[in-house]
């Protein structure tokens, strides 16, 4: 059933990376509860443009929960109050009529604000570039059934691979730690035969990059798992620790 609500939005405005930002308050009427949070933001921007004001800059791309761009910290939660979804999948029916909604960018030293709600999540790309891949050796194609993979490992690898690199884990972590992301990326490859070959090397390179970029030390609070839109489990962090420690002790 379609309904419409009136909301007040407290949104972080910041003209550039070095400029001091502040909250601005906007009123938006007749928001359909069937619209997504980003559609609501579009309507707000339309209203701002009609008032000849600067529209709010925010990141978005796929709008179906797979690209990880829509980084917004809404009412105290990354991607808003609803669980296991991204901002683009958040519906306005999660909010009450007359509610004040606070929207902030990710705040983490490694994710600097570019403008308004847009942050530079390039640090995650740099971690991937450091080792989150499989080096390709072209050769004959092996028989599909020659290397059996257990269902348990295949499932774990797929669960890890569901990570979309959105950055919610580091954004919500009180220690600004990127461990859940790095653990997911190390696990998805370490669990499968193609990735296993370089697993130890990969863990060392990716952790070194993560530390160099200024992410914090994990104290196992579990906030990342609770806020992850893909519900990536912190058990992958234990695997990363295991991979890293055994690689270091072998050296």
């Amino acid at each position: 059933m379609e309904k419409s609500i009136n909301v007040t939005l407290k949104i972080w405005r910041q003209a550039g990376p070095k400029v001091k930002g502040k909250f601005e308050t906007y009123k938006l009427d007749n928001v359909s509860t069937d619209s997504s949070f980003l559609e609501m933001m579009d309507v707000l921007n339309e209203q701002l443009i009609n008032e000849r004001k600067e529209p709010i800059a925010f990141d978005h791309d796929c709008r179906e929960g797979i690209c990880g761009m829509c980084s917004m910290f809404i009412n105290g939660h990354p991607h808003g109050p609803d669980g296991e979804i991204t901002t683009c999948q958040l519906h306005m029916r999660n909010f009450k009529d007359g509610e004040t909604i606070t929207v902030e960018p990710w705040r983490s030293a490694a994710f600097p604000v570019i403008r308004d709600l847009m942050v530079d999540r390039g640090a995650y790309d740099k971690i991937i570039q450091a080792g989150g891949f499989v080096s390709v050796n072209t050769g004959g194609v092996p028989d599909g059934n020659a290397i059996p993979i257990s269902k348990v490992d295949a499932d774990e690898a797929m669960d890890a691979a569901s990570c979309i690199g959105c950055g919610a884990c580091a954004a919500t972590c009180k220690n600004g730690s990127a461990m859940l992301f790095v653990a997911a990326k190390v696990s998805q490859l370490a669990l499968l035969p193609q990735g296993r070959v370089e697993a130890a090397h990969r863990a060392k390179l990716m952790v070194a990059k993560m530390d160099e970029l200024g992410f914090g030390n994990c104290t196992n609070t579990g906030a990342c798992e609770a806020e992850c839109p893909k519900n990536v489990s912190i058990s992958h962090i234990a695997r990363l620790n295991r991979e890293f420690l055994s690689a270091k002790f072998k050296d």
């Binding site: 407290k10 105290g76 983490s108 914090g216």
Partner: peptide, 10 residues
Amino acid sequence: RARGSEQYAV
């Protein structure tokens, strides 16, 4: 330090 200088308002 990793958390950064700006705190979340909510």
